[in-house]
Amino acid sequence: MKPPPFDYHRPRSLGEALDVLAGTGADGKVLAGGQSLIPLLNMRLAAPAHLVDINGLTELATVEEEPGGLRIGALARHARVERSARAAALQPLLGQALRLVAHPVIRNRGTVVGSLVHADPAAELPAVLALLGGSVRLARRGGTRDVPAAEFFTGPLESAAGPGELAVSAFFPALPPRSGTAFHEVARRHGDYALAGVAALVGLDDDLRVSTARVACVSVGPVPVAADVTGACGHRPPASADWAAAARAVQDRIEPETDIHATADYRRHLTGVLVERALRDAAGEALHA
């Protein structure tokens, strides 16, 4: 369990990083927190010729408010965002999700943006981005582009970030007024990737009836599965909303698979249970918002 040989680069500025990445192209891999990449290297499942370590780019260690939301830089660690008061105030779902990501030691190193680029369909943050309709900012030498969540996750462990590109930040829209969020999941052990998990956002209108209800599910498809279930819930107060119908609607949409930890049927069942729980909790939050 030792990685195959690679060249190591540690750029000191964003410009230098983009130059190096432009030079290495498809042979280069960005190293952020290393919590996913290093195990892949050690098991020789990945063998990039160049490793571009961005841990020297402290300019990217940012958590900043922007109109309409929160921008998180590529070097902001999970732990930092989890503890950020600004993040909690603007978008509580981030904190709710981060508490479920791995363990404190891993959150001390792993990055939010790295987690998005890694695009594990079992990971929480891609689901958060998908639910909220956020975006990822990709930079390459000579330009940047913002890719919306719906286009960013392209397959299991596959994202829109191409060769030579560095994800410099991600944008998470703020929680609208009279809205609430929740994240529920079932993992085999505390901190494991979830067998199934559901992030939910519920918005209420002036009469405190459900006006938006959306969920995003993890571990039940090749990418996070986002679904608008406003219709299924019915335009009703949370106490009488039809969460079960919403759950059924989601169960019809997902394509879980059987693996060594759980059957597809169990995952589908679990997703239904968690959709109900998450929607109910999110609505409760919205009532108190």
């Binding site: 195990p39 098991m43 363990h103 085999r188 052990r189 505390h190 901190g191 494991d192 060594i260 930890h261």
Partner: peptide
């Protein structure tokens, strides 16, 4: 499941 990712030993939390 020849790794600690998939061979589940209980943590202190379990």
């Amino acid at each position: 499941n020849a790794s600690f990712m998939d061979f589940l030993m209980p943590y202190a939390t379990e």
